[in-house]
């Protein structure tokens, strides 16, 4: 058996891409000298399975996730990432709660649910890559707003407020993050990262400072707070803040972002 180095799933000998996450199995990991690992670039037309459904990744510059939904499966997404679907695929809405708070935070009020059987496809509108994160039971993952592409219905969805006034005013991550939790069943979470995506595993207590706009996801065990740097920016010489990530857990970043204090 071949173990996938991205999601750790076991694959039959001879397979060239992971059946669980689509990562190429015949390429070496790309890890920088300081320990950042590139998320695997999914090859055009790569196919992988989750539950009874399949996902095929099309394109490489702004990749599309085309899902063939099993009759017993469903998935949810923000409605503006829907690229096309079979007419017969029913759509419904999921109440996320906190309507006004989400509105103030710039997040969509409604998360849309698509149920099988049928085909449906998703993409976001920026050059980048798809990050496939199969979640085992008992996992919690925090994702920056507007970065998630789709999640299978076995994953619980909520959102959390980024705590602390300093975070709200200077952190640059917006006011809320999406939180995805698996309870008794595994699930599939797919994100879209702008540019290239890099991941690093932080040891307990290990810290890294990240431009808030570059933050993409983290395990919920990673603590995030805004710290002021000894730098002054802009004509008014205001302070510069970075997001301090403290382990243990994974941190994912994207290399293309809108800088939150780019003057």
């Amino acid at each position: 058996m071949i173990q996938c180095q991205w999601c750790q799933a076991q694959n039959q000998p001879g397979t060239t891409s992971c059946q669980t996450c689509g990562a190429p199995l015949d390429e070496r990991n790309k890890v920088s000298d300081s320990g950042w690992r590139e998320a695997p670039r999914l090859r055009d037309m790569t196919e992988f399975r989750f539950s009874g459904s399949t996902c095929q990744v099309e394109g490489e510059l702004v990749p599309v996730a085309e899902i063939n939904l099993h009759p017993q499966d469903a998935l949810y997404f923000e409605h503006h990432v829907l690229l096309w679907k079979d007419e017969t695929v029913p759509l419904s809405s999921m109440n996320t709660g906190g309507g006004l708070k989400r509105s103030i935070g710039g997040m969509p009020h409604i998360v849309t649910v698509a149920s099988g059987p049928g085909r449906i496809a998703f993409s976001r509108n920026a050059p980048g890559e798809m990050v496939v994160l199969p979640l085992h039971p008992g996992m919690e993952l925090d994702v920056r707003e507007h970065a998630f592409l789709l999640a299978s219905h076995t994953i619980q969805y909520s959102f959390i407020r980024i705590k602390g006034l300093v975070n709200l005013l200077h952190g640059g991550n917006g006011m809320y993050m999406d939180r995805f939790v698996t309870a008794g069943y595994p699930g599939m979470l797919i994100l879209h990262g702008n540019g290239d995506v890099l991941e690093r595993m932080l040891r307990p207590g290990e810290k890294i400072l990240v431009e808030p706009g570059g933050f993409l996801y983290k395990d919920s065990t990673v603590q995030m707070s805004a710290v002021q740097m000894p730098l002054k920016t802009g004509l008014l010489r205001h302070g510069m803040y970075l997001a301090e990530m403290t382990g243990p857990g994974r941190v994912g970043i994207q290399s293309m972002y809108v800088h939150h204090h780019a003057d």
Binding site: D33, W36, R41, P127
Partner: peptide, 11 residues
């Protein structure tokens, strides 16, 4: 070290 190909980062 240059990481990435779409929007490469210089580490």
């Amino acid at each position: 070290q240059v990481a990435g190909t779409t929007v490469p980062a210089a580490e």
